[in-house]
């Protein structure tokens, strides 16, 4: 007597296998869809920028004349912006992470801060722009200068830096802390001399990645009111400024009026993407180099 009708099973089997294979192909196409978009996007941007990127483009000031326009001011603006964002965000982000991981271990204060940070991470960047506009630009009277934009950006990427630093600090093995305490070191000595140095690779990876986010971020600075006008190259944090994404924005919307502006936008995008690519590569190199040291 047969409990299983082999023929019947086989008959059901082949459509099932067929379905599985079909699904697999569909899932595969979905998975490489991103790749296709990426290729299209990069091809598009590069082909639009061909002939537009040269030393003059990098070293010239803005101009309404597409042939003469350059992004030197925007590059310097981005550099100056980072001069504000990097120290502020490292100070606040790492400090918060140390507090959460080393001092506030388990407790209400920790829960409140931690929940707050994950909610802050979900606040749209344009809302941070409004905060910056209201507090830094208007209430504090700074105006739309680099300092105001930098502080706004620093708050925007703060949650990312905090979370990355927390992970880096958590990854420092407990036995190193024990070894330090065992020598009679105090808590702060242990953090300063052992935990932070060991966490630096992880922290720097996180900081670089979040700075690259800040470099590409546009909305908060539009809201703060970066002028669309041609302005002098900034040389202090109290100057007005423009940044690469802002130039891309203005040139893109104005490309409806002047065709060449689309090329300028594409050329600026290429420079921006190269910078981001370099920053991400550095972050990845640091991450790989210092993985598994203990």
């Amino acid at each position: 007597m047969k409990y299983i009708d082999v023929e019947q099973v086989n008959k059901n089997m082949s459509p099932r296998i067929f379905k599985n294979n079909l699904a697999k192909s569909i899932f595969f196409v979905a998975a490489i869809f991103g790749l296709l978009v990426l290729i299209t996007l990069i091809y598009r941007v590069f082909s639009d920028s061909i002939g537009w990127i040269d030393i003059n483009f990098l070293m010239s000031k803005l101009s309404t004349d597409a042939e003469r326009a350059g992004i030197f001011g925007a590059i310097m603006g981005t550099v100056w912006l980072m001069v504000v964002v990097a120290p502020v965000t490292i100070f606040l982000g790492v400090g918060t992470a140390i507090y959460l991981e080393e001092y506030a271990k388990k407790g209400r204060v920790r829960n409140i801060i931690q929940t707050n940070i994950s909610n802050l991470a979900g606040v749209p960047s344009v809302v941070f722009g409004i905060l910056g506009l209201t507090v830094f630009v208007r209430a504090m009277g700074l105006g739309n200068i680099i300092l105001a934009g930098g502080l706004t950006m620093a708050l925007l990427i703060l949650p990312i830096v905090v979370v990355a630093s927390q992970e880096a600090i958590r990854a420092v093995p407990q036995f190193l802390r024990e070894a330090s305490y065992g020598m009679g070191a105090t808590k702060w000595q242990t953090i300063k001399n052992i935990v932070l140095p060991a966490a630096i690779p992880g922290i720097s990876t996180g900081v670089i990645l979040s700075l690259s986010r800040a470099i590409g971020e546009t909305a908060p600075l539009v809201v703060i009111g970066i002028p669309a006008l041609i302005i002098p190259i900034p040389d202090s944090v109290f100057d007005k400024f423009t940044i690469m994404p802002m130039q891309i924005y203005y040139w893109t919307i104005d490309s409806a009026l002047v065709d060449e502006y689309a090329n300028l936008a594409a050329a600026t995008i290429v420079i921006l993407l190269i910078i981001l690519f370099l920053m991400n590569s550095i972050a990845i190199i640091i991450r790989n180099k210092f993985q598994k040291r203990f």
Binding site: P173, E178, A179, S180, G182, I194, P197, F294
Partner: peptide
């Protein structure tokens, strides 16, 4: 107390620093 009472652990746990800095840590 811990300055007067040293501890050696089951798993060797030097700091990820130079040999010199390890010894000079205390």
């Amino acid at each position: 107390l811990r300055t007067k009472v040293g501890m050696v652990f089951q798993k060797p746990n030097p700091f990820p620093k130079s040999i010199y800095d390890n010894i000079a840590y205390g």
